[in-house]
Amino acid sequence: MILSGLVEGRGKLRLYLYSCAWIDQKDPAVGGTLMHEMSLVEAILESLEEMQKKNNWKRITRVTLNIGKMRQVIPEVMEFAYKTAISGTTLDGSELEIRSLDMRFVCSSCSMEWGEDEMSFVCPFCSSTEVSMIQGMELEINTLEVEEND
């Protein structure tokens, strides 16, 4: 099966062999990043830009994030990535606050709750598997502090 086509834009798509194609994502600014905190920061900045336009805010001065401990995000790396990414942009000078949320589990069979020390989806009290994680999986923009246009 022969594939054809050369697509320019965010990376190039090339013919490689008769039955495969190849996407070469050379531009690091569009996502080929070294750590996933930077990917997340880029996504946040895109969202903030859109929100700022839509709401006609003068400036965003503070961003708070809720990040659950299961999400494998290192807050210090995130803060560093944010500071680096906003430099020279309209967000320069804005603060990033990360609310790091502990893992919390609850068993719907016996209603007991527990934390990361006993990280388990099998209830350590009654061995039921009717367990859900009520906190610790969040990865969201919580609030923004904004300056409005007068």
């Binding site: 190849w22 996407i23 994502q25 080929g32 070294l34 990917s39």
Partner: peptide, 16 residues
């Protein structure tokens, strides 16, 4: 591709 399966390769050049 050697097994004649349609395949697309994405290279991230640093993306993990």
């Amino acid at each position: 591709a050697a097994l004649n399966i349609p395949v697309v390769q994405i290279n991230t050049h640093g993306g993990c």
